[in-house]
């Protein structure tokens, strides 16, 4: 019985993990069709920002929840102004540019922080669940992810900003004809996407530890989740695929080991994209966000 609860919590954690690291990518890809291969490095930057703030004596919660997204958002803004804005509509060129950007960011972080694994202390102690000892921080991640997605939904559904974003996403020409400069919308969207990635990096740093190259570990899962989710619906698509992949990979991990968990997840993604080329949302949630 306890074990069942442990398994369910670990599944919830894995779903939250995928949804959290995918959020920034979902916004950027879903709204702008920009394939940002430096997404993993934005997540990594969020982690290192948290580390730098924590070393400077700033409160850990404030560092990860506020400073990390702001700093990475600013990095995203600079990148958009200097690189991405010249490449809208040129998918292959964007991929190449952001791939180079990811290498550059890894290099810069290595020069500043060195390439050894570093550690942000976990601020929440473990707790007892029946006969099992569990990581308390996992619960926090589950909570944060739920709050994040509710927040995103509220913004997209009920605010003017959300309305404009959805409008530009559905048809950039019409939005432009109505007086909203799509370039400004894209700039804001990319900045918000980067900030969300930085947020994920800050929140996950205490759990996974940090390496300059650790961005690579996030990119596969988030791309699979976002593409399988489908570009049409940022929230429902990403959530649906996170639930699917998180559950499958964790169930298989418990049954055998983490290697098979990853293999099954990748195989499932291929099968799903064959059956539903427009993603889960393209098939089931055509009219949602």
């Amino acid at each position: 019985m306890d074990y069942a609860a442990v398994v369910i919590l670990e599944i919830l954690y894995m779903i939250s993990f995928i949804a959290l690291v995918s959020a920034g990518l979902a916004v950027v890809f879903g709204m702008m069709r920009v394939i940002n291969l430096a997404h993993g490095e934005f997540v990594m930057l969020g982690g290192y920002t948290t580390l730098a703030c924590q070393r400077a004596g700033i409160d850990l919660w404030f560092s990860m929840l506020v400073i990390a997204p702001i700093v990475v958002g600013l990095v995203g803004l600079i990148v958009e102004r200097l690189v991405i804005r010249f490449l809208y509509g040129r998918m292959i060129d964007t991929m190449l540019a952001t791939w180079g950007l990811s290498l550059l960011l890894i290099g810069i972080v290595t020069l500043i922080f060195g390439s050894s694994a570093v550690n942000v202390p976990t601020p929440i102690p473990g707790y007892q669940l029946g006969a099992y000892q569990m990581g308390g921080y996992n619960l926090f991640i589950i909570g944060v992810t739920i709050a994040l997605y509710i927040g995103m939904w509220l913004v997209l559904r009920y605010t003017r900003l959300g309305l404009i974003a959805r409008g530009a996403m559905q048809n950039a020409d019409i939005a432009s004809a109505l007086g909203y400069n799509p370039r400004t919308v894209y700039m804001v969207t990319f900045t918000i996407g980067a900030a969300l990635s930085g947020f994920a990096g800050g929140v996950l740093a205490p759990l996974t530890g940090l390496l300059p190259a650790s961005g690579g570990g996030y990119i596969a899962e988030s791309f699979i989740a976002v593409i399988t989710g489908g570009a049409g619906a940022v929230i429902s698509g990403t959530l649906a695929s996170s639930v699917l992949f998180g559950t499958i990979s964790q169930v298989v991990s418990f049954a055998s080991g983490p290697v098979l968990g990853d293999i099954v997840m990748l195989a499932l993604a291929i099968v799903l994209l064959r059956l539903m080329p427009t993603g889960i949302s393209g098939r089931f949630f055509r009219n949602s966000q």
């Binding site: 707790y127 759990l207 530890g209 390496l211």
Partner: peptide, 15 residues
């Protein structure tokens, strides 16, 4: 470096 996470998560859960 990646496997270092085990020691961290082991401690974080109180194990």
């Amino acid at each position: 470096g990646a496997h270092m996470a085990f020691f961290r998560q082991w401690a974080a859960s109180g194990m």
